[in-house]
Amino acid sequence: MIELTDVHKSFGQNEVLKGITANVEKGEVVCIIGPSGSGKSTILRCINGLESYDRGEINIEGLKVDRDAASIVKVRTQVSMVFQRFNLFPHRTVLENVVEGPLFVKREPRVQVLERGRALLAQVGLAEKADAHPPQLSGGQQQRVAIARALAMQPKAILFDEPTSALDPELVGDVLGVMRKLADDGMTMVVVTHEMGFARDVADRVLFIDGGVIVEQGPAKTLLNQPQHSRTQDFLRRVLHPL
């Protein structure tokens, strides 16, 4: 469903993606792991056109991702994004955040959208916060609102950019719980994460990225339990046993 073919991307002199080829099937959960600065987030940002890429091609169900083309709106309404720092709109209520896209981008009927918005907030366990403003919520709650906002677009896939990295440890579980439920419901997900437990239990496949290339990929359990490449082994050892 999401196909990347030999994607290259440089920031000035610094080549962060050096030929990424990968695809994500419908209903699949793919986790991207790797050291910081390896280009993980850049891949996600290229997939929904927040970042342009220099060479290669990204297709979403046959639609080419080109951030300068009018079709980018179609890409973005089909592929939602959840950010590390939530990026909720602080001047709008929680419910307004959720329905913003359907109402003002997709122009769906108001009554229907509001109903769906409330249902989604209930789904992420925040029905009673509909009229609160984001700054009044905890990080974990904000991230769950952000997931509801992504879902409200009724996307074909959701990209998660380190969704739990900015959270206090005790709040991580709630967010991962919501994501696990989504995965169980068959949502196509690409997740950049440092949560190896989540990757092992929920992901179908894991990509290990280092230095702008995919060093190793495979079924989650295989890659995380028996990594083949020495760089993968090294990385996992440092993440799992930091002391």
């Binding site: 929904n48 056109g49 973005r76 309404t77 950010f83 990026n87 896209g101 003002f104």
Partner: peptide, 12 residues
């Protein structure tokens, strides 16, 4: 991040 969030839901 606000602008990126807006873009990511398809806003022009």
């Amino acid at each position: 991040g606000q602008i990126e969030a807006a873009q990511s839901i398809g806003m022009g």
